[in-house]
Design a protein around this nucleic acid. Structure first.
Length: 486
RNA sequence: GGUACCUUGGCCGAGUGGCUAGGCACCGGUCUGCAAAACCGAUCACGGCGGUUCGAAUCCGCCAGGUACCUCCA
């Protein structure tokens, strides 16, 4: 089975054929770094991390470009006033670039905690001002833009005579025009759908650059057209982003790139679905966003406890990237237990002893997992196959079934490949190393309990166990001793 | 108002015409001094109504409920 990808352009799954195999160019819209990333943002980047990892597994040489938006992103749709960074900078009495730097660092820290691979290139909007100005010039030259007192607008109605403006959302221009509000008297735009490529700055605007049209700053959509074409070419393979960017940002981006380069920018458009809370989209403006830190510590009011980063990553991998995923304490609890069972089985697999023959069927696992991933990156199905194999592992462990050396070797390889390399999950077994004294104290107590047990002194044995349990320790008796964890 | 999408067992979540994903919970069992943990096993489903079909959770129509986009948001 070949890799098929759901393409938003065609609204169906298509076989993936790169322009220049084995090279693949993938551009993903990154964050606007004016505030902390919330979990919904993380979901998109974790989804594309899965996609990136699987493309690498298939042997593609992927150039993965994910931008940082650090300029030009306005509040609202008026094409005037302060950008988000300036606004925040004034609020916190900092330089805009201090805001940008602070939240860029935070973004990287969080994605690192979620075990995502860094992109090949992570360009910033402020680092590509001249490239953006060049694009505006070219669009003006080709006649799809006009300047009004220092601000340059994209002429949507003119563009849509030659190209399909609503191609990504399957909408007609007339329908889109109906959905927009009337222009107010002061508006400088000719058409209601026109958007700004370059915005004139006020003297007090903190982030501004000189341009042929006077001092100003780039429109939000422009950076992606500039940076994707610079690093991936005028037409590249995959363009991705959150579903919320589809209607406006990506629609405008396609129009700009097409008007500038006279070719469609990307062959496959991928959109990841939203994370919801009680069925409603998690978003900054709705104020229902979870910060990763609130999740790890459990400090959010909707959570009963904290959940580890890998639990969350597993939770996300259990749903398909194009489905909404509802976030709740109950769902996370279920994922936490499932993930821990999977990882314990993965650990058990390493200690399995092989027999002469296999009494169980595990040989087809890799093909099944590949088929699932080839079907538009269906990670939930991969996980279901892993759990099926887990049952086989446990049966061999319990000596109810046997496995041959060949099958065992392959099984280990498939597990590590899919769990670690593709799903990006890793064991969270305690990594604390500076607490030897305390660990030895617990061991000491439990050894005393073991002695009591051997003497059938159940009162002492139960007392030690019950009091440690009350302190939050989990005590497990095993055949030859004990195990514990906090 | 316009345009899409969604509705699966107690919960989460795959699945697009026949072969009942998976996880969690619950229940039964194994193990254990008793527990816990672990392991094994079983049960439970396709919003409602109608249609197409030998056969529909899956296709079509209508109805009900929900969500998203059309305005900044991954």
């Amino acid at each position: 089975m070949k890799l098929t990808i759901y393409n938003t352009l065609s609204r169906k799954k298509e076989e993936f054929v790169p322009l220049h195999a084995p090279n693949v160019g993938m551009y993903v819209c990154g964050p606007t770094v004016y505030s902390d990333v919330h979990l919904g943002n993380c979901r998109t980047f974790i989804s594309f991390d899965l996609i990136y990892r699987y493309l690498l597994y298939l042997g593609y040489k992927v150039r993965y470009v994910r931008n940082i938006t650090d300029a030009g992103h306005l509040e609202g749709d008026r094409d005037e006033g302060d950008d988000k960074f300036t606004k925040k900078a004034k609020l916190e009495q900092l330089e805009p670039m201090e805001i940008v730097h602070k939240y860029t660092i935070g973004f990287h820290e969080i994605l690192n905690i979620f075990n995502t691979l860094p992109p090949s290139i992570e360009p910033t909007a402020t680092g590509h001002i001249s490239e953006q100005i060049e694009i505006v010039k070219k669009i003006l030259d080709s006649g799809y833009a006009y300047e009004t007192s220092g601000t340059v607008y994209f002429d949507v109605e003119k563009y849509s005579k030659d190209f399909s403006y609503g191609i990504l959302t399957n909408r007609k221009l007339e329908d889109m025009l109906e959905g927009t509000r009337e222009l107010s008297g002061q508006d400088e735009k000719k058409g209601r759908l026109d958007f700004a490529l370059w915005i004139k700055a006020n003297p007090e605007t903190l982030m501004q650059w000189p341009s042929p049209w006077g001092a100003g700053f780039p429109g939000w959509h422009l950076e992606c057209s500039a940076m994707s074409s610079k690093y991936l070419g005028n037409t590249f393979d995959i363009h991705g982003g959150g579903m919320d960017l589809q209607a406006t940002h990506h629609t405008n981006e396609i129009a700009q790139s097409q008007a500038c380069h006279h070719v469609a920018p990307a062959n496959y458009w991928l959109h990841t679905n939203m994370l919801t809370v009680n069925g409603v989209r998690m978003s900054k403006s709705a104020g229902n966003g979870f910060l990763p830190k609130e999740l790890f510590t459990g400090s959010h009011p909707l959570l009963e406890k904290g959940y580890s980063p890998m639990t969350v990553r597993f939770f996300m991998a259990q749903s398909h990237y194009r489905s909404t995923l509802d976030f709740s304490n109950e769902a996370l609890l279920a994922s936490e237990k499932g993930f821990s069972r999977l990882m314990e089985g993965y650990g058990r697999l390493q200690k399995l002893t092989a027999s002469a023959t296999s009494s169980i069927e595990t040989a087809g696992l890799r093909a099944k997992c590949e088929d699932a991933m080839n079907d538009d990156f269906n990670s939930p199905i991969v996980i279901s196959h892993l759990f099926d194999a887990l049952r086989a592992i446990n049966l061999v462990h319990d000596e109810k079934e046997t496995i041959s050396v060949t099958d065992l070797t392959e099984l280990k390889l498939v597990f590590s490949t899919f769990i670690e390399d593709i799903l990006g999950l890793k064991s969270e077994a305690e990594t604390s190393n500076g607490n030897d004294a305390y660990k030895r104290a617990i061991d000491l107590l439990l050894n005393m309990r073991l002695e009591a047990k051997q003497n059938k002194d159940w009162a002492t044995s139960d007392k030690i166990r019950n009091e440690l349990t009350a302190l939050g320790f989990e005590i497990k008796d095993t055949k030859d001793g004990f195990e514990w964890k906090l």
